[in-house]
């Protein structure tokens, strides 16, 4: 019979070194999409004067200070200087919301804050203002190691995301893991496959010619395998986002990243 002491010891071991399932990338082998890019795209991200994502960050900074809604309040009226109050915050998102009993993305947190505290009209997903605020807030975490998913209350949702990540879907019958765990560094139609580490969202994608969220990226991957994409803000997309962030544990935030 297994003693409680043995179970406790096993749990401690598991906490010290997270158990990897078959195919999962060990922590010291995790690489940002930045490592898969050419020199030109890297240079564009590295130089704030050439990084097109910085225009959104500047817009977000202006929105942060702007009084809106029937409460006539700006983000800054409650949160003060974002450089200190928002530092490291995005590296913990999606984060568990106690009132809702589920994790929310940074975009959803902004939407909730606008509704509850500013009493302002909701911002649609992928709208310019939402992306700008999200980019500005996440930019305050540039360089901060990702810790999303560490909260014990988030664990069941991390697990839900992992199951979705491992599940084959769509007419092409492929799972995220088939490309991003088993075949990164190889080429799909000539373009390198990355590890899908979401270190720089929202990010400027040259293919999109604009800034976009991780949810947009996930939805386009789902369309790629000819699956019905989950809706923006759906529990499934949030769980996938949470799992991906937890999988990128320890990698530094890069927002706003630039990707091909």
């Amino acid at each position: 019979m297994i003693s409680w002491r043995a179970i406790a010891a096993a749990t401690l071991l598991a906490a010290a070194a997270p158990v990897l399932l078959a195919g999962e990338i060990p922590p010291d082998a995790r690489r940002s999409g930045y490592a898969f890019m050419g020199a030109d795209t890297r240079a564009m991200q590295d130089d704030d004067t050439s990084n097109p994502g910085m225009l959104f960050v500047l817009d977000g900074e202006a929105l942060w200070a702007k009084k809106i809604g029937s409460a006539d309040k700006a983000c800054a009226d409650c949160h003060g200087d974002a450089q200190s109050s928002m530092k490291g915050v995005a590296a913990r998102y999606p984060a568990f919301d106690k009132a809702l009993g589920r994790p929310v993305t940074l975009d959803q947190r902004i939407i909730l804050c606008r509704a509850n505290h500013q009493q302002a009209t909701p911002l649609p997903y992928e709208s310019r203002d939402l992306l700008a605020l999200s980019a500005f807030i996440a930019h305050q975490s540039r360089g901060t190691p990702i810790t999303a998913g560490d909260d014990p209350q988030a664990k069941p949702f991390v697990e839900q995301g992992r199951v979705l990540y491992m599940q084959r879907a769509g007419q092409l019958n492929l799972a995220c893991t088939n490309c991003h765990d088993d075949n990164f560094d190889k080429r799909l139609a000539g373009a390198p496959i990355t590890q899908a580490q979401p270190t720089g969202y929202p990010l400027y994608r040259l293919e999109w010619q604009t800034l976009g969220s991780l949810e947009r990226r996930l939805r386009s991957c789902m369309s790629g395998v000819r699956a019905q994409a989950y809706d923006y803000g759906s529990p499934e997309l949030v769980a996938l986002e949470l799992y991906l962030m937890s999988r990128a544990h320890g990698l530094p935030m890069e927002t706003p990243a630039v990707r091909p």
Binding site: A169, N173, M222
Partner: peptide, 21 residues
């Protein structure tokens, strides 16, 4: 990872334009 090119069932969440084909 090679899809089954002549199959139209037993798949998960197939996109609307592709379902059943």
């Amino acid at each position: 990872i090679m899809p089954s090119y002549y199959r139209n069932d037993g798949l998960v969440r197939v996109g609307r334009n592709f379902a059943g084909k």
